[in-house]
Design a protein around this nucleic acid. Structure first.
Lengths: 123, 123
DNA sequence: CTGTATCCAGCGCGATACTG
DNA sequence: CAGTATCGCGCTGGATACAG
């Protein structure tokens, strides 16, 4: 008989916070530079406006991103990583590298890049 | 005008493979030891049999886990990480540590553990 | 430009029953 | 024990319209 103890695995804590459908990709983009709403939307070519807004709100609520509104017409909103948000970047870097290695290992590596200088994501 | 280039971010490649609802948690459990189907099910207390089977099949198809069937009655099936599966463990370790730090930073850290000696996950 | 607010179609997933 | 098969509900998320 195995000893069983209930506990909440902190891996799932992390998944609750950055595991949302678009959250990792949003954080990854913001790790390179502060971006406006429309810039994020262009980089994540498949997100709908509704989803992007929703995911941004949750990331803001959880303290990972900062939302700065400029009192201008037309309105401008810039999103950036908080220190807490920056602390997840090492995880994303590992994921980026692992994905690259995986594609190479499975020989699907043609025409794949993940450099911050490139601007649009095909998800 | 920004330069826009289409590419597939390798972060999303990784998410496609380990981003499934239970996959990270399955890999995390298997990183400590080989487990039988029923052992996995007990450790992931909220998974249904259907979902566990489905996620295991996909992880196997993607080359992250190995499925070994023993020709016995009653049947016994053991799941373990392949070398490819072991290569994601560093990501999971970072996630585990980050989750722990997050709980501490947000002062929800009471009664939380993530040690491999503990056996059951409340997701 | 950066959002809200509805509506509703699709399917993810749970529940249940059955099997080698 | 370790699955497979089927049914159906509930919620996710897309489409659309509207607004500050």
């Amino acid at each position: 008989m195995e000893e069983i103890t209930n506990y909440r695995c902190t891996v799932s804590v992390t998944l609750d916070i950055i595991g949302g459908k678009w959250k990792s990709l949003i954080l990854w983009q913001l790790s390179f530079k502060t971006l406006r709403f429309s810039q994020l939307q262009r980089r994540l070519s498949k997100v709908t406006q509704k989803m992007l807004t929703q995911q941004l709100r949750e990331l803001e609520r959880d303290g990972l991103i900062h939302r700065k509104v400029y009192a201008e017409v037309p309105p401008r909103v810039e999103y950036s990583l908080t220190p807490m948000g920056q602390s997840v970047v090492p995880i994303l870097q590992l994921m980026c590298q692992w994905g690259k290695d995986y594609l190479i290992a499975t020989e699907q590596s043609a025409a794949v890049e993940c450099a911050p200088t490139l601007k649009r994501i095909e998800v």
